[in-house]
Structure formats: C-alpha cells, structure tokens
Design a protein around this nucleic acid. Structure first.
Lengths: 203, 203
DNA sequence: GTCTATACACCGATAGAC
DNA sequence: GTCTATCGGTGTATAGAC
C-alpha cells in the first residue's frame, strides 16, 4: 500500500507539472486574460473540474507559474560567474529572458489586469520571490552604476523596469513572425537595442 | 427643417466624438480585451444599445480610435521641420507618442488579441493609414541609416517594431505609479534609454 | 436615434456520481 | 481524484417600445 500511495502521489505531482507547463505555454501565447480554464483543461487533457483539485483558482494557477519563473530567474542570477561585471550580469539576465520566451516561456509580465496584479500582491510565495529578485536587480544596478557601466541619462528605476518590460516586448513576436531573423539574431538585436540603444555610438 | 436636420447631425457628430474620446481613454487604461461596451456606455452617458447605432461592433469602435491615432501620427510626421535629420524625426515621434500616452492617449498597440488584430487587417481605413505610417517610418530609418545615425548592431525591422512597442511599454505605467519622476522626466528617460541605450557611452 | 429588456455565448467555479 | 453537468455572472449584440 505504501507503494500504491507513493505511485499515486507521483502521478499527482506529474500531472501538476503538466498543468504548470500547459499554463506556461498558454500564458506566453495569449496572456492571462485571454487564457481560459477550458484552454488549460484541453491542453492538459483533463476535465476542467479536476484542475480545481490542484489549484483553487485561475489566479492561484497563474501565480504558481510565475513563482516558478521567478525561482528560475533567481537560480540563473546566483549561477552567474563571479568574475562577470554587474553590467554583464544584467545583460545576461535579459538575454536569458528573451531566449526563455522564444522557447515558449511565460514572460515576467503576462498581464496588465488590475485584479490579477492585486491577487499577486496577496500571493505570499510570489511576493517573497519577487522581492528577492527585485532586491538582487537593485544591487546589480547600483554596482554597475558605481563602476560607470550605466548611462547617466537613465535613472535606476528605468533600468529595472525596462528589464522587466523587455521580457514581454511585442517586438519579439513581430520579429518572430517576420521570419527574417533567427531566434539567436532576435535575442542579440534586442540586447543590442536595449543596452546599446538605437542610435549609432561614437567611434 | 434644414436647420433641424443640421442641428441633429451636429449633435450626432458631437456624440460620436464623445464616444471616440471615451474609448480612447478606456483603451489606454484597460486595453482592448478588458474594455467592455458597458464601460463605454457608462463613460459616455448613453445606453449600450445606442452605441451600436454609431459603430456596428466593438472591433469597429476600437478600430476607429486607432485610425484617428494613425491620422494624428501622420500629421505629426508631416509637420516636422525639414531641417531635422531623419534620426531626430524618429526620436520626436517616440517623444510625441510617450507624451500622448501620459496625457491619457491610446497606444499604437492596445491589444495582443488575435481576433482583434485580424479585424484590423480587414479594416480598410485602418490598414490604409497603417501602411502609410509604416512606409514613412521605413523611409526615415533608411535615411537615418544612410546618414550614419543608426547603430550597426540593430536591424531596420528592430528599429521600426521598437518604436511601435515603446508606445505601449509598461515601463511608462510603472514610472508613473512610482511618482518619483515628472511626466517630462519619464519621457526623456525613456527616449534616452531607447535611443542612447542603458549602457554608458564612450567619451 | 435612444432607451429598456433580452437573447445567446462564454467563463470561472462548484456539485454530485463514480 | 476525475469525470459530467450545471450554476451564477458577465460579455457582445439585438429586439422592440417610444
């Protein structure tokens, strides 16, 4: 019986992972507002009612996916070589976010819905992670500023918000649909445009 | 009776303008998907049914607002001093778009909804204007590139898509809510970040 | 043409059989 | 715990009185 329970638990956890993967993809394609619980149920291949045995609401479900993303982001930040400059680390975070999204991952900002954003503020797991990520970003920006890696014309808040915003920049979708650039070229062009700017640099 | 009809027509046109203004504001606040026809009716102060005497659908209604925006954009482009460089003109378009949005105007990309985007493709008025704006952008980018004003690391498509995307960049909302920067400072920081980039320039 | 009332579809969430 | 069936609510769009 122990084995039976263990097997059932494994099955349950595997299904939960499958749900999160499906939601991840749907959120990246349609965003929170346009994603329906029917979409999720169809994608996973279970009945809609069964979803609520795993997650008590659509907001909790999307919050779990975003929490998973924040955990990945934190891991990425901590795994970066110590010899990289702070500016390089910020650039790599953006590069990873863009690659992540081009592979079908959910962006850091999948919705502008006020009610969903408020539900995230009440989500302890999500908020804890978000605060940790934000704190790390602030430290990196401060260090990069100190080392003279950051433009004097751009305030710290703009740097940080821009990093979040680029993860859901529709430019990525346009370039992807355009088909003229490879995924790698899209990433490098976006990184160059974000950190280097659109204007020509003095030589 | 001619006067009577004329007056009624004026009233009708005035109401239509009021509707477009309300939709403009609602689209800028909630985006297409979250804006409901009830919202519009309440904002204008008319019954929901009456809206459909002016516009046959929600998609047509939003399309009319976007067409109005594109007309304004074209006027802005044509009114620019001939002595400005192409790069300066592109920068001013972005500056105007950001100012427009901070004053409560609808962004160029108010929705990622597939069905709405498809409806725009079938909207002759909108598509005609969009093509004209896009053509003008391409000309300006080509000229700026020719004059060495544009970064070699950023392809033309990325320049153009970025200009559209910045008009709906959530960074603007974050900075506005943050309250630390004035509207003018937000605009200049965003312009500097977009054209100058986040990294420090060589001196 | 503007109003009230309503048809029809969809969505989030729940109930109850198994 | 998973299914089918359904509730309550909301959204777009329309019908009909005035």
């Amino acid at each position: 019986m122990v084995f039976g329970l263990s097997f059932k638990k494994q099955q349950f956890d595997a299904r939960e992972e499958a749900i999160l993967d499906a939601v991840n993809q749907l959120l990246s394609e349609k965003g929170y507002d346009l994603m329906t619980m029917d979409d999720v149920a169809d994608a996973v291949g279970v009945a809609k009612g069964s979803l609520y045995k795993h997650f008590s609401s659509k907001e909790k479900l999307a919050g779990a996916v975003l929490s998973r993303l924040l955990r990945e982001t934190l891991e990425r930040l901590e795994a970066m070589p110590a010899e990289w400059t702070a500016g390089r680390k910020l650039e790599e975070v953006l590069r990873w976010s863009l690659q992540h999204r081009l592979r079908g991952g959910v962006p850091h900002l999948p919705s502008t819905s006020v009610s969903f954003q408020r539900s995230l503020l009440l989500n302890l797991e999500y908020m804890g992670l978000a605060i940790r990520v934000n704190k790390r970003f602030k430290e990196l920006v401060a260090k990069a500023r100190e080392d003279g890696e950051i433009s004097a014309q751009v305030p710290d808040e703009v740097i940080i918000y821009t990093l979040y915003s680029r993860s859901c920049d529709p430019t990525v979708e346009f370039l992807k649909q355009d088909g003229k650039l490879s995924h790698e070229q899209i990433v490098e062009a976006m990184v160059a445009a974000t950190f280097g700017g659109l204007s020509k640099r003095e030589v």
